[in-house]
Design a protein around this nucleic acid. Structure first.
Length: 452
RNA sequence: GGCAAGGUGGCAGAGUGGUUAUGCAGCGGCCUGCAAAGCCGUGGACGUCGGUUCGAUUCCGAUCCUUGCCUCCA
């Protein structure tokens, strides 16, 4: 199986060749645990979940996704509520993990916390200062950009470009205004740790470099994250890691997922248009969110709206509808067409179209056995995308806030009327049932119903 | 201003140098007591202007538009 991935570093789709032909290492930037996760926080995990599933078919994968529990936004949240910092981080980490599970995202192999790797970070800063790549000034330690001529290679920015239009506040204590902070002093209520540069805390980018090295080694096969992290976060990670190592790259393949928009504007805190996963799940089933993500290629923005949700529900209706009358079916080997689509830079829209090709084959099958065999392939293929993990019946019945017993009774009455050819009465009952938000489907085996 | 991505039929969204994407919606038919689901068929597209080519939505150039990023704020 040949996997091709778009590499942000080279801006090209490349054949994926891991360092070790049997093992793959993948590090994905997770969330900062300071508030409820929004759907933008979920897209990356879903995308990399599909990639992980694909890689695990072929390789022994070690997938690390960190949790940032050390950040000024967290301290602000704790102060606001007047609670301990750990209460904030633990609360929102738990909610995040629950939401991811709900969306069918498999747990990564490791989910390390920044606060448990302070020592590793201090060691990395020490190496950088020893090597002359970093300098201390008034309790701060800065990375010295001028010692790393390749700075900007990942995000493709030259020095001039980085300066022009930069929003950075000039600082007296930096040698070069592009230098970024590795360590900064803490005081008052802000947490800190003892270090060679005094009581303080690490800069934002350091944790990923330190934890990636600890768990996966100096050079990763794949480093992932949201496209908004490309600069400066990943650029700075590269600078720190490469300079603290012996010049080895931090990662061979950089994979970035696109953002989520509302009305074509990026969802962000400053826009005030955050859609929380929790709120969305009040009215939309998790699998709908999942397939909505996979409808668009991972590198493109998704414009989130009600039409997308409606379309996604109908897609699942069609997928599950094809196997609904086939009884119990176990997942089989995925279709090669689906594997090929996902292997081509995670072309999930193409993969979905292959799923629908299978649906068509099932609906056209001449025999029950043929249909069941194809259904087995369909489920196995969908599972690779994290879809169709429940019984079809469950999909059509689930969270229908209707009285199932009542519906069944009404259906019996209608069947009786139909047997008597009293179609007027039968239609009357159907109208009643439909007014309850349920549609009927008369199958040879008897009537089926689903929530509208 | 710089860097990057993108502009595809009513909507969403892949892909391709010449042949059906796919899903929803539309239209015609089949099936059905009628529906629903399903099946068969069908219309409709590649921002604009040039160039390369026998032929471009697909390659090249220009242009317009959209979106994202541009450090101690993700």
């Amino acid at each position: 199986m040949k996997i091709r991935l778009y590499n942000s570093k080279t801006k090209k789709k490349e054949l994926f060749v891991p360092i070790d032909s049997n093992k793959v290492t993948m590090y994905v930037c997770g969330i900062t645990a300071y508030s409820f996760p929004h759907i933008g926080n979920a897209r990356g995990p879903v995308v990399f979940d599909v990639l992980a599933k694909l890689l695990r078919r072929e390789y022994e994968l070690t997938y690390v996704r960190n949790i940032t529990d050390l950040d000024d936004k967290i301290y602000e949240a704790a102060q606001k509520e007047d609670v301990k910092i750990s209460e904030i981080t633990q609360r929102y980490t738990k909610i995040y993990q629950e939401d991811m599970t709900t969306l069918g995202v498999e747990e990564p192999d490791l989910e390390p916390l920044a606060t448990q790797h302070i020592q590793e970070m201090i060691e990395m800063v020490t190496v950088l200062t020893d090597k002359g790549h970093a300098y201390e000034n008034q309790g701060h330690v800065f990375f010295n950009i001028d010692t790393f001529p390749d700075y900007g290679f990942l995000s493709n920015r030259t020095e001039e470009e980085q300066i022009s239009g930069a929003r950075v506040q000039p600082s007296e204590i930096k040698k070069n205004q592009r230098d970024f902070v590795l360590w900064k002093p803490s005081s008052g209520d802000i947490p800190g740790w003892d270090s060679p540069w005094g009581f303080g805390r690490p800069g934002w980018h350091l944790e990923c470099s330190a934890m990636a090295k600890k768990y996966l080694g100096e050079t990763l096969d794949i480093h992932g994250g949201g496209s908004d992290l490309l600069f400066p976060h990943h650029e700075n990670e590269c600078a720190q890691s490469i300079c603290s190592h012996s010049g080895q790259p931090l990662a061979n393949y950089w994979v970035h997922n696109g953002m989520i928009d509302f009305d074509n504007v990026k969802m962000s805190k400053s826009e005030g248009n955050l859609l929380l996963i929790r709120d969305l799940l009040q009215k939309v089933r998790p699998e709908v969110i999942r397939i909505a993500f996979l409808t668009t290629h991972y590198r493109k923005p998704i414009n989130w709206n009600d039409a997308l949700i409606g379309d996604s529900e109908k897609k699942l209706d069609r997928l599950y509808g094809s196997i609904r009358k086939l009884g119990q079916i176990l997942p089989g080997d995925p279709s090669q067409d689906v594997i090929n689509a996902i292997s081509d830079d995670l072309n999930t829209p193409k993969a979905l179209s292959e799923l629908f090709a299978l649906v068509k084959s099932i609906n056209n099958a001449k025999t029950d056995k043929e249909a069941k065999d194809l259904g087995s392939v369909l489920i196995g293929s969908a599972n690779l995308l994290g879809l169709m993990n429940q019984d079809a019946e469950k999909w059509f019945d689930s969270d229908a806030d209707v009285d199932g017993v009542l519906i069944e009774q009404m259906l019996k009455d209608r069947e009786a009327a139909r047997l008597n050819k009293d179609f007027e009465k039968a239609d009357e009952i159907r109208k009643k049932i439909e007014s309850l938000g349920v549609s009927i489907e008369d199958a040879p085996e008897g009537p089926l119903w689903k929530k509208l």
